[in-house]
């Protein structure tokens, strides 16, 4: 931690430079998305567009079935967020608040799967998904989240561990079963942690590219991330439209970030997961 008052001016200078470098790409992305293709070719990086081509946004919305992609993305996000929070909370409770033999081992396995590369399970999972007839269905992506996600189980378990034992004890005295304790005590107390999990799952699903690439083949079912990639190859010469589409795709995540900045930051600093 740097505290010397006399150092302030150069720290401020460095901070200014660093944040300018980091945010400049975003700024030019937004300004570029508002320039006509002609202006973009002539003056790609002028920060303020000469004429504001809001039309780029309408054009890029119309050059791909944006509504369909967006609807699919939202369906996926809602499904996955519900699936993950539900399943992970249950499992985390079982791993933290219910004593049973083998619990330690199970938790060890959870942590182990957290660090496994997805490659190794990619092909067999594909086979499994197509065997049960979920290929080319959004369920191919949603359903696995109902079976728990190691990172989030880990996060929730750590949180559940901090709930004072006295509270649960009081519940038990009132005759609550584990199920009752889970719903009436642990869940209400864990809303911040659950929100973190939901938020991260939301962002993860919003950004997910590999899943749709593998499992979906009907453009009527494509989510935005995948639809946008398809868009890149067919519109590689229309940078202004690509930028507008990228901004549209990014905007919700950014807004979400500003709304839930604290949750984001806390989530990342306690688990080290990338959003």
């Amino acid at each position: 931690m740097i505290k010397h008052r006399k150092n302030r001016w150069w720290i401020c200078g460095l901070l200014w430079v660093a944040s300018a470098i980091f945010s400049l790409p975003l700024v030019v992305m937004i300004s570029g998305s508002l320039k006509s293709s002609e202006e973009l070719a002539r003056n790609p990086y002028g920060l303020v567009p000469e004429s504001w081509s809001w039309n780029n946004y309408l054009d890029s919305l119309q050059s791909m079935p944006f509504t369909i992609y967006l609807t699919n993305t939202i369906l996926l996000c809602v499904g996955c967020v519900v699936g993950t929070t539900l399943s992970c909370a249950l499992v985390a409770y079982g791993l933290s608040r219910v004593p049973w033999r083998g619990r330690g081992l199970a938790f060890g396995l959870v942590v182990a799967t957290m660090l496994l590369p997805w490659h190794i399970t990619m092909i067999p999972r594909f086979v499994l998904i197509s065997e049960i007839g979920l290929y080319n269905s959004l369920w191919a992506i949603i359903l696995p989240t109902f079976l728990g996600e190691a990172f989030f189980i880990f996060l929730l378990r750590q949180f559940f561990m901090t709930i004072p034992e006295q509270l649960l004890e009081a519940g038990r005295i009132d005759g609550l079963s584990h199920w009752g304790l889970f719903w009436n005590i642990v869940i209400p107390l864990s809303k911040p942690a659950l929100a973190t999990v939901g938020l991260f799952q939301f962002v993860q699903t919003w950004n997910d590219f590999g899943g749709p690439l593998l499992y979906l083949n009907d453009p009527q079912k494509f989510p935005l991330a995948y639809g946008l990639e398809r868009f890149v190859s067919s519109y590689s010469d229309q940078t202004h439209l690509l930028l507008a589409a990228a901004v549209l795709f990014t905007l919700p995540v950014i807004i979400l970030f500003f709304l839930a900045q604290k949750t984001f930051i806390q989530g990342i600093s306690t688990t080290g997961i990338k959003g």
């Binding site: 594909f126 086979v127 998904i129 197509s130 007839g133 290929y135 080319n136 593998l214 499992y215 083949n217």
Partner: peptide, 11 residues
């Protein structure tokens, strides 16, 4: 790859 996946995926 997409077509292959769709044949292998059964749709």
């Amino acid at each position: 790859a997409k077509l292959f996946l769709s044949v292998a995926g059964g749709d």
